[in-house]
Amino acid sequence: MLIYKIFRSEEWSALQADGVTQGAPVDIADGFVHFSTAAQAAETAAKHFAGEDGLVLLALEADTLGEDLKWEPSRGGALFPHLYRPLRMDDIAWHEPLPLVGGTHQFPKGIA
């Protein structure tokens, strides 16, 4: 199962340069890296990245993250994946731009 992380361009650039990251400022503050499922990704983008362009969507295989990935309740009791270790470049299955078109983020087909 794929899970998804949305990064701003500077966060993505830092991960590419360093090979590892503690995540975005919200991840660092919370002590884990926030992810979304395909069904949750659009709501995450709308809630936390409204109007932001230049985003990058990262996809990761949940099964490869082992015991460091925890599924925890969040919005209305829905379970969200949280990674309790740094995110590594080699964790990324693929990445694509997440363009903003007419005020809505355009996800790849089959996501959100």
Results as ranks from 00 to 15, higher is better:
R88Y: 07
A78D: 13
V26K: 13
D27Y: 09
L87C: 01
A62T: 03
L87M: 10
A29P: 03
H105F: 10
I6K: 02
I92D: 12
L15G: 05
A93F: 14
R75H: 13
L15K: 08
D68C: 04
A45S: 04
S13Y: 11
G110W: 10
A59G: 09
K47M: 09
E43I: 09
Y4R: 03
D91W: 07
G110M: 10
R88T: 00
D18I: 04
A50M: 10
L83A: 02
L60G: 02
T37R: 05
L57E: 00
T64Q: 07
F80C: 11
E96K: 14
W12K: 05
A29G: 08
A38R: 09
E11W: 02
H95N: 15
Q40S: 08
T44S: 12
H82K: 15
H82F: 07
A62K: 10
E67A: 14
T104Y: 07
L55G: 00
K5R: 05
H34N: 08
S74T: 07
F107Y: 03
D63I: 00
H95D: 13
H82Q: 14
A29L: 11
L15P: 07
L98D: 01
G23C: 08
A41R: 02
H82Y: 08
M89C: 15
A41V: 14
E43S: 15
S13N: 15
W94T: 11
H82C: 10
L58Q: 04
L79P: 13
H34S: 13
F32A: 08
F80I: 10
P86N: 11
M89Q: 14
V33N: 09
Q16D: 12
R75I: 05
T37I: 04
E72R: 15
L2M: 14
A42P: 02
Q40D: 12
L79T: 12
D91P: 04
R75Q: 09
A38I: 02
P97H: 02
F32P: 01
A24F: 09
L83Q: 04
D53P: 03
D53V: 14
G23R: 03
G110F: 09
P73T: 12
E10R: 10
L60T: 02
A112R: 05
V20R: 14
D68P: 01
G31P: 06
